[in-house]
Design a binder for these strands. Structure first.
Length: 421
DNA sequence: TCTGGGGTCCTAGGACCC
DNA sequence: TCTGGGGTCCTAGGACCC
């Protein structure tokens, strides 16, 4: 059996753990730059705040219901996620960390179902007690069905106490019949619209379509979902997190930028972040893309979204080298007369650090630079991210995001640790 | 005034090889 | 008049996930 465990309203729950006065209060967490609402407590959902809504459109509803608003604090959420995942790793034979707030579990060795049930309830309680994060768990024979079971557990928390096990044919069919097609894992907006046009409204309807038709209309990916819903496991547990094939760092600016030097500072930050992420997974990138965006929402302003992809002479994860090319690329695509809203750096063609092909005309002393990067990483690990950084980061930082409602880093910064009176 | 930031996989078609 | 059969690689675009 597969389990899918999922943290309830994860970011909102993280904000609550160290601030108990927020219990039973409506909370929302905002995206970068305090733009959109990306997490809501149950209470916030109940007053009608939709997922992904721009916060400025929600001002009245927020005020009327005393909704507490937080900027996103990924340092806190990342650390809380690690806590949850490490507890799970100690309790089940196999674990696949699927996202910051979700994990698939392999639940082998439970021959009798009542024991599985007991264990599952214990798991939920134990994670909650150890971390303060409430979780729900769905269990079934395939990952896709486990996702559905989890969804049901979450929607019916009082009834299920956070656990739903699909352990009989009747339960599976009932759940399939009451699940809208768009709620199935693997069926996104396009496919659900398409399927509904064909009269397929529920997950059950989908399982009744023919395999050939599904393969033809939705490729092998759709067919896998179809099989999984019918109880045939096709998507295995993937417990070794594989190295990323592309890494992207991009941000909206705090306000629009028109001058090249300001954007250069931001680019330095993005390229440095890409280099750091590459080093974290011990790989190097051969290709870099820089992108600039004007404000998509301002139809009245001239739009310009240039990008440039560059082949690096030698695959690299060196902050200085990647920054150099990012700035060089930026200077090529930058044009005066536009106000820019966002920029980003993507690195791709990623290879293991140990397999970098040299270049006859290379002038960089790579082993020396690698030692330098390692030293910088070590300092920044203990003294705070970007404590040692390139000067081209700048000091005026016109481009920084808005994060007006940031909570303390309760778990990662001694100066911001919780105070007990 | 204000609108997020990451990723993966598959397919079709074109260009090329022998 | 007749005009093969088998591949690979790359790219753009589209679908999905959190």
């Amino acid at each position: 059996m597969y389990g899918l465990i999922d943290c309830n309203n994860f970011f909102a729950s993280c904000e609550r753990v160290f601030n108990p006065s927020l219990r039973n209060q409506p909370i929302v967490v905002l995206s970068n730059n305090d733009g959109c609402i990306i997490a809501r407590s149950d209470e916030a959902k109940a007053v009608g705040i939709p997922m992904g809504a721009p916060v400025f459109q929600m001002r009245e509803i927020i005020k009327a219901n005393n909704v507490h608003v937080f900027s996103s604090n990924y340092i806190l959420y990342g650390d809380m996620s690690n806590r949850v995942m490490s507890i799970l790793a100690g309790m089940v034979p196999e674990l696949e960390i699927y996202s910051i707030d979700e994990a698939f579990l392999h639940l082998d060795g439970f021959s009798e179902l009542y024991k599985l049930d007991d264990f599952a309830h214990y798991l939920i309680k134990y994670v909650g007690k150890s971390t303060g994060i409430p979780v729900c768990l769905g269990i079934a024979e395939t990952k896709t069905l486990a996702k559905l079971a989890n969804h049901y557990a979450k929607k019916n928390k009082l009834l299920t106490k956070g656990l739903y096990v699909l352990d009989s044919e009747e339960k599976i069919i009932t759940l399939l019949k009451t699940t809208e097609i768009g709620d199935v894992w693997g069926i996104g907006r396009r496919y659900s619209k398409f399927l509904m046009q064909k009269g397929i409204m529920t997950a059950y309807d989908f399982t009744q379509a023919s395999a050939g038709w599904v393969r033809k209309e939705m490729s092998v990916v759709g067919l896998r979902t179809w099989k999984e819903l019918r109880g045939e496991p096709c998507i295995e547990l993937d417990h070794t997190p594989s190295a990323k094939k592309s890494i992207c760092t991009s941000r909206s600016f705090g306000h629009k930028l028109t001058k090249l030097p300001d954007i250069e500072q931001a680019m330095t930050y993005y390229a440095s972040a890409c280099a750091r992420k590459l080093r974290e997974q011990e790989s190097c990138a051969r290709v870099m893309t820089v992108i600039l965006y004007t404000d998509y929402f301002r139809k009245d302003l001239p739009q310009y979204t240039p990008s440039l992809t560059m082949q690096l002479p030698v695959a690299s994860n060196d902050t200085m080298e990647l920054t150099h090319y990012a700035i060089e690329g930026l200077r090529k695509i930058f044009k005066d007369g536009y106000s820019y809203k966002k920029a980003g750096v993507i690195v791709s063609e990623i290879i293991p650090q140990s397999h970098v092909q040299g270049n006859l005309f290379d002038t960089v002393n790579r082993s020396k630079r690698m030692r330098l990067m390692n030293a910088i990483d070590r300092i920044n690990e203990t003294s705070g991210r970007d404590k040692v950084r390139l000067a081209s980061f700048g000091f005026d930082r016109h481009w920084v995001n808005r994060r007006d409602q940031l909570s303390p880093n309760y778990t990662t910064n001694l100066k911001e640790i919780i105070v007990v009176k």
